[in-house]
Design a protein around this nucleic acid. Structure first.
Length: 503
RNA sequence: GGUAUCGUGGCCGAGUGGUUAGGCACAGGUCUGCAAAACCUGCUACAGCGGUUCGAAUCCGCUCGAUACCUCCA
């Protein structure tokens, strides 16, 4: 379905306003999202960020745009508070090569993205694979006079840049340049080399013992963290492209510095729309390993945590994310997950019910009914929700409203001839499109069965139970039900017979 | 300490100058041998204190609280 006629609005961090989205080239979108630093297992917060951008990517695709989605892998240059490279630190602790660390956690990250049903980006460049591009960018920034060399390291000259491009530095994070200049911390690293504390490293000279080093015109060393995104976005999307995304915590200094580097190198702004996703909290507070307020995605999926009453599936997590707007802080609680699980399962069930409705009917009398109009209004409202800065919460609310119609049609509370066949068809397409294409959900209620032997046994058991019930042998019937419940299987009785699900 | 964002019913969360968000929970009902499930109906909030306005939960101010950032955590 091509619906590029729709008007999409995006909250642009650059302007602080919601703007009508208009791509640089009609029909095409270039989108860059800051990817993970692959030095440890994926954090639940990362899961939210990349799922948010996955939904943005999916909706752009749905609108008919040809999207080039670039998401990098940071495998060098991202230092810890102690100034050690994160890869090198992992390598030292585990006594392996830094690139083994990067490989291990890149695979781990990809696995998690698949688990969450996030589509892969079109290009996934690595920082270590683009050292040449980064060196060239440093050279361009030097040539244009916005960087200086000190003892083999190269630093960005913020004051010079701010004089030539007033108002650029600070636009993403909403910071005032004067404040930044005035701000100074006494525990800054290697600031003695820098002309000004706010200047940041483009290239860092290696110290003895550094493992990840490359040759450069200035020294044997490694690129600064911010540089990779500037170099790779330029390489794959051009000097100016449409959308740049990342978590809000990256606004400063990472994104701010990125903009400065691009400006410094080419004199132009890199992205036209900046999208920032918000944080995920746990029980009302920041997730913190040291405070014990922390769960990993694996713990969430296994239920192995004192903070959880049970295991939650990846799609329940995804549904949980969908219930909130990407730019809001989202609080995760066990009660909330429980609610999301029930809501998700009902949504999948109602979709199955909807898809099984008769495709056509001859009793339709040809007019547009009040029900038709109500249904169409909710469908349109769901789209309007997505058009309004990818508001999945709104879209979901209208799908829930539509669920009620599906049930009423299915149980004949609304006569079938009160709803036009084409409206039913439209409803079916809307559910499939939203749930699976746009929201990127998978129907886990199906694959929950899976095992053929278990399915065969269950069919047999339910058959025996049905026979007992036919003879009003409630003792046998209840014994089967209770025993299965103890084994984690719920039996559901309905007019059509009994069915079962894992608890 | 500085800067920014936010504070919505039992819980999670949209939204916003005047009109039902939605989900979960809860209550009642239908169904059922009982129960569960499913469905139907109900439930009406916007941190506190001032101010602007015909009208504010929505705008402004203050207070309290939360979160993020402040040289490299999505």
């Amino acid at each position: 379905m091509n619906t590029t006629k729709r008007t999409l609005k995006i909250s642009n961090t650059l302007s602080g306003k919601k703007e009508i989205f208009s791509p640089l080239h009609e029909g095409f979108v270039g989108m860059y999202v800051c990817g993970p630093t692959v030095y440890s297992h994926v954090h639940l917060g990362n899961c939210r960020t990349f799922t948010s951008f996955d939904i943005i990517y999916r909706y752009l695709l749905h609108l008919g745009y040809r999207v080039r989605y670039v998401r990098n892998i940071t495998d060098v240059g991202h230092l810890t508070d102690d100034g050690e490279d994160r890869m090198a630190r992992g390598a030292r602790i585990n006594q392996i090569e830094p690139m083994e660390v990067a490989q291990k956690y890149t695979l781990d990250f990809h696995e998690m993205m698949r688990t969450l049903n996030n589509l892969p980006p079109n290009i996934e460049p690595r920082a270590t694979g683009h050292i040449l591009e980064q060196i060239e960018m440093v050279q361009r920034i030097l040539e244009r006079g916005y960087a200086y060399e000190r003892n083999g390291s190269v630093y960005f000259n913020l004051r010079q840049f701010s004089r030539d491009y007033p108002g650029v530095y600070g636009q993403v994070s909403g910071r005032i340049m004067e404040d930044l200049i005035a701000e100074s911390r006494d525990d800054l690293k290697s600031q003695d080399e820098k002309d000004h504390p706010a200047d940041f490293a483009l290239w860092m000279k290696a110290r003895p013992g550094d493992l990840m080093v490359w040759n450069s015109p200035w020294s044997v060393g490694f690129p600064g963290w911010h540089l990779e995104c500037s170099a790779m976005s330029t390489k794959y999307l051009g000097q100016t492209f449409d959308i740049h995304g990342g978590g809000v915590d990256l606004k400063f200094p990472h994104h701010e510095n990125e903009v400065a580097q691009n400006h410094g190198a080419c004199g132009c702004s890199p992205a036209r729309y900046w999208i920032h996703t918000n944080m995920l909290q746990l029980n009302g507070a920041k997730m913190s390993k040291s405070e014990g307020n922390y769960i990993t995605p694996e713990q969430l999926f296994s239920g192995d945590s004192p903070l959880l009453s049970k295991a939650y599936s990846p799609m329940v997590l995804r549904y949980y994310f969908l219930q909130a707007h990407y730019a809001s802080v989202l609080d995760m609680t066990d009660d909330g997950l429980l609610a999301a699980e029930k809501a998700y399962r009902k949504m999948m069930e109602v979709n199955k019910l909807l898809q099984s409705l008769p495709a056509d009917t001859t009793v339709y009398d040809g007019s547009e009914s009040a029900h038709d109009r109500a249904i169409l209004r909710h469908i349109e409202a769901a789209y309007e929700g997505m058009d309004d800065d990818f508001n999945t919460a709104i879209a979901l609310a209208h799908l829930n409203e539509l669920s009620s119609y599906v049930h009423k049609i299915a149980n004949r509370q609304i006569p079938l001839n009160d709803v036009s066949p084409w409206v039913i068809e439209r409803l079916k397409i809307t559910f499939r499109t939203f749930l699976f294409d746009i929201f990127g959900l998978r129907d886990e209620t199906e694959v929950a069965h899976g095992n053929k032997v278990v399915e065969g046994l269950m069919d047999l058991i339910l058959e025996i139970r049905a026979a007992a019930r036919a003879q009003k042998d409630w003792a046998t019937s209840d014994k089967i039900r209770d025993t299965l419940a103890a084994l984690g299987i719920a039996v559901k009785d309905s007019k059509e017979g009994a069915s079962w699900t894992w608890l």
